[in-house]
Each structure stands twice: as structure tokens, then as C-alpha cells.
Design a protein around this nucleic acid. Sequence first.
DNA 1: ACAACTCATAACCGTACGGTTATGGTTTTG
DNA 2: CAAAACCATAACCGTACGGTTATGAGTTGT
Lengths: 112, 112
Amino acid sequence: MVLCVKLVNANYVFRALADPTRRAIFEQLTRQGEQTVHALTHYAGVSQPAVSKHLTVLKRAKLVQHRREGRETHYRAQPDALAPMVDWLRHYGAFWRDRFDRLETLLERMEP
Amino acid sequence: MVLCVKLVNANYVFRALADPTRRAIFEQLTRQGEQTVHALTHYAGVSQPAVSKHLTVLKRAKLVQHRREGRETHYRAQPDALAPMVDWLRHYGAFWRDRFDRLETLLERMEP
DNA sequence: ACAACTCATAACCGTACGGTTATGGTTTTG
DNA sequence: CAAAACCATAACCGTACGGTTATGAGTTGT
């Protein structure tokens, strides 16, 4: 069951980041921290409703969280939600998996 | 110019892996190595033309390569093409970036 | 030579997607 | 209190997407 949830969420994450506008919004939130919808709209170059819908998709993937403050909503990135994508890359991205495994091996050799 | 190409290709990679069927095909190629379209069709559970189209999308993202051999085409995964996605995660996935940076720091401390 | 196999492409279809404008609810400001 | 600001949702639209069946080109086997 937990696995199922993880897979479904991985789907949401992959789909959410497939759109360049959504990636740009997430990048902006990562770089600049919390932002209002207004600020994000100004940045994204599309209409405010479009931004709201993108934020909904990112929210579904748990890539962003929001905090109401009066009439404005502040969104912030939730980079932990990228974990399913990172896990997937660990499994199927041989190129980077090898690199990671080497580092992990080094770590293990150091720790004891 | 190189940056532009990289960005475009990152777009292709993200879009290609957004579809679960395409991810499944890529995963299968990663696990089992080279496969014919016929074998992939049997595995994917969709029609052969659908598989061909998915392979075209993966090819555009350079995630697979193909090799003609008589009447059959053998496809294989090209995990190096995941690099743009890994790079993106390094930039914007704070969660995993921190972890990576820690490992890199340890590496640097060891080397000298 | 002919039948069967493998694959890519074309043609088509329903739907999901990304965008827009319009609207309404809530909150701040004058 | 009225007006303006902020945001989410609804309604709508064109198009891209993922799937199908049909077809044709190239290759293999009998």
C-alpha cells in the first residue's frame, strides 16, 4: 500500500515537472523562497489563473505548500517531494547510480 | 548555444519520462538490456504502433538508441541522457543537493 | 515465388492539457 | 462603506497526447 502511494506520487511528480512553466515556478520558489501568487504571476509571464492551476498541480505532487495570510497566499517549495524522482534515478539511471554508489562506498569505508 | 541545446534536451527528457508507459519501457531496457520492438510490445501491454511512437519520443530525448538487424530493430537504453535531469535536481532539489554536497565535501577532504 | 514476420508511418479518435476571459469571495485600503 | 487588491474556480477553446486500426516497406523462411 505504501509502495502504491509512492508510485502514484512519483507519477504526479514526473507529470508536474514535465511542463516548463511549472518547472520555472518551482525553480523560482526554490531560489527566492516564499512567494505570493501575484509575484509568481508577474514572473511566469502567463495569466494569474494559469499560475493558480499550475500551483494546484504542483500541490498535488506535494512539490509546494501554501500559507494563507490575509488576502494573499504564500507558496513555498517542498524539495523533499523530489525524493521519488531521485529514487527512480537511483534505480534506472545507471550513469548517476554508479557515481552515487561510489560515493556511498567511500562513506561506508570512512564511517566505521 | 550549447546551453540552449541542453535546455531543449532537458525539456525532451522531462516530457519523455512524464508518461508511465514510456518510463516502463525505459526501465525494461535498463534492466533487461537490448530488446526488439516485438519484445517491448509484449511487455508494455499496448499495441505495437503505440510502442513505436513511444520509442520515437524516447529517441528524441536521446534516452534510447536503436540498431537495425535484418527485419528487427533492437533498442537499448542510454542512461547518460538522464544527465540533464540529474543536473536539474542538483540545482533545484535542495534535499538531494545537500546530501550530494556533503558527499562531495567528504570526497574533497579525502583526496588531498 | 510466396507467405509470414517485423516494424514504422498514416489516419483517425477521445480526452487531457495549457492557455485564456469572466466571475465571485475574501481581505485590505481610502 | 465603497473601492481596489488578491486569489481560486468556472467556462471555454485550440491543440497536443496516447491510444487504436490500417497500410506499406523491408526481411526471412518454405
